[in-house]
Every structure is written in C-alpha cells, then in structure tokens.
Design a protein around this nucleic acid. Structure first.
Lengths: 200, 200
DNA sequence: GAGAAAGTTTGCAGTAATGCAAAATTACAC
DNA sequence: GTGTAATTTTGCATTACTGCAAACTTTCTC
C-alpha cells in the first residue's frame, strides 16, 4: 500500500527542499527575514543561488511546510466533487479534503516560531497565494462550464482564496492546523451566508 | 467653488505623472510591455529611473489612468457611510461612489488598446491591486469595531477586492467605465446572495 | 527678498526574481 | 555496462524594485 520506491532523483529533490527550508527557518530566526538573503540560505543548504527558485517562487515561501503540489491536490479534489454540488460548496469541500496533507507536514512548530517573531511575514506570504488563485479560477471555469460565466468563476476563485487568506491572516499557529481549518470553515460559512455582519 | 490653485509643485507632479504614463503607453504599444524597461520609459519622459517608483509601484501600473489616491477616496467614502449600514453594502456603495472619479480620468482609450493587444497585462495589474486590500481591511476593521472580529474584516476586504478584480478581469474596455461598474455591481450582487450558481 | 522648512528628484548600492543555455546528474533501453 | 534521453543544477546576464542620503526645488515665515 505504500508508494513505489521514489527513486534517487525524487529523494534528492526532497532532501534539497528540506535543506533549503531548514536553512531558511534557522536563519530567519537568527537574524530576522529581512537580514537573510537568498544566497545566505543557499550557501547554508549547499546549493547554488539559482536553484532556490527551482523550488520556491519567493524567499518567504521557503518557510511554509506546504508546497505547490497542494494547490494541485485541491484542484484534483475539486474535479472529483459531484457535478450537482453548488460551486461554493464544492470548493470548500475540496479545500477541506486537503487538510490531512497539510496536517501531515512536519515543520509547523518552526513555522509557528518564525511567524510569531516576525508577524510581517504573514502579509508577504498571503500575497504569494495569489498565484494559486488563477489556477483555481481556471479549474472552476472548466468545471462550471457556462454556469454564471467568467465573472462568476473569477469571483468564486477570489472569494475562496480570500477565505483561506483571511483565515491564515488571523490564525494563531499554536492552535495547529485544526485551528486553521476551523477558521477556514467559519470564513466559508460567512461567504455562503452573504457576508452578514453576524452569523446567526 | 473650484479647488484652490494647485501650486507649482502639484502641477509639476501631475505633469511628470502624465509624461510617464504617456511614454509607457506609447512604448507598450510599439514594442510590447515585456520589451520595454523602466529606464526606457523614464528616458522618454525625461526623468531619472529612480523617480518612476515615486509615482508607481510597478512598471505595469503606469498604464492605468487611476492612481493610489483612489483607494483613499474609497476609504473616505466608507467612513462616510452610515454606521447602521451592513458592512458589505457600505463597501459596495463606497466603491460605487468613486466611479465618477474613475470615469473622469482621461486615458481609457489608450488603456483599452494596450489591454486588448496584450491581455496578459491584466493579470499583472490585478495582482498589483492586492496592495490596496490591506488598507481596506484596516479601514473595515476600524469601522466595524468588534463586529465579526478580525476574520470578518479580512474576509470582507478580500471579498470586496475580489469583486473588483473579477470585474476588471472580464471587463471589455470598450464598454467604458460604465461597463466596468455594471460588472462590479453584478459581482457584489452575487456576494450578497452567498455566491449561488445562478442569480435568481 | 533672505533664510528656514518641507517636499521632490536623483544617484548609488544592493536584493529578488526570471530567462536562457551549458554542464552535470539520473533514468532508461538494449 | 554503454549510450541515449530526460531532468536538474548551475552560471550568466538582465530587470524590477527598495532604502538611503545628498542635491535640488518649491513653499513658508518674517
């Protein structure tokens, strides 16, 4: 039942990624993110500076224990939702389904320490999430066919991404991924209710 | 009733901004945005390269006939909305109130031509709008006091920004600012309805 | 008007990020 | 194993963008 032997190539990539992340976290904690350059991280991880950007889109992303394939997972889950399901519900469930993968990641504790020490990182990281949104919008447009048109797809993707971003923005990392999931759930509840001031 | 004489300083700033914008639009059309550097634009406009970033946050922003003070206008309008108004409605009205300023801007025709010729610019520009979102979130948080908490403020700001971004993404510039406003209205309608697949 | 105060432009130096093509590494076929 | 195809790493060149401090311009005060 376990995945096929990953092979040397995949293993090395995982090691490089882990080394980069470990170096980034350590240096961020030591000197603060602003005083750490990408070159510093790469030197500590033993790879060239150019390689960093084969793994991460931005300096700050090296902090997070999730990576790009998570958005693909969301999109896969989305495709697996029943066609009759209302779009907002489908996105919500797709995101919820990927939380186990999120929880399985190691490195939350380190992430917690850095985010607590340097709250401004949160903003930067949240900004980076916008790249994923267009992937999601395309997937939604495809799924929905003509339902609601392109405006609706874009809006839905934006709203879903906003739900996640808002949750991440106010999340106390020490509550763990379960805490994050609860916030995401609340955000989607509010969206589904039409953003009233109070949830009834 | 007219505004006080702007003074030399303000007038020069306006001229510089206009020169930069004109140069950017012209060069974008001639060679495509990717083949135009900020230095090119500045050379054509007769200012130093460093000055460009006193006026715009990013290369592509020089294209748009609106500027940063528009978001301030939205925030001012927001502050002027009655406190009893539901937050989503208040943001919507605040945005709608600033459309006259948007429509008053000159340069839409040029903007239209460039966006049509280089659709990928739209994505870039939409990304840039994220900077405004945090300003809006703070304003909402302040206005709402404790209503709904920080998650609600962030989500509302994200949703409102998504409404505008989605509208801009699908907007056909030849329909003018009125066309954009109609799309923004539809997006807010959908948000208020809880993002159902069809507007009833 | 002269001089102080405030705001703007500019040069400089440095970092983030991306494209491209060559070199190195791993996987695969026989 | 050897050779070949596919990936990955790396170096190089370039551009976007930011902070800082000095020079310059406009505005304000008397």
């Amino acid at each position: 039942m376990q995945a096929a032997a990953p092979g040397l190539r995949e293993r090395k990539k995982a090691e490089t990624r882990a080394a980069l992340r470990a170096a980034a976290v350590r240096l961020f904690l030591e000197r603060g993110p602003a005083a750490v350059t990408v070159s510093d991280i790469c030197e500590a991880a033993g790879v060239s500076a150019r390689t960093f950007f084969n793994y991460f889109d931005a300096k700050e992303e090296a902090l997070l224990p999730w990576d790009k394939h998570l958005i693909e997972e969301v999109i896969t889950e989305l495709a697996a939702r029943p066609a009759a399901e209302p779009p907002l519900t489908a996105v919500r469930r797709a995101i919820e389904q990927t939380f186990p993968s999120l929880t399985a990641s190691t490195g939350w504790q380190a992430c917690d320490r850095v985010l607590t020490a340097y709250p401004e990182l949160r903003t930067t990281i949240v900004h980076g999430m916008l790249r994923n949104q267009s992937r999601l919008a395309s997937a939604l447009a495809e799924r929905a066919g003509q339902t609601g048109g392109r405006l609706y797809s874009q809006l839905l993707a934006g709203a879903a991404a906003s739900a996640f971003r808002a949750a991440f923005s106010v999340w106390a990392p020490e509550t763990g991924t379960a805490g994050l999931q609860a916030l995401v759930g609340e955000a989607f509840d509010r969206l589904a209710a039409g953003l009233p001031p109070e949830l009834t």
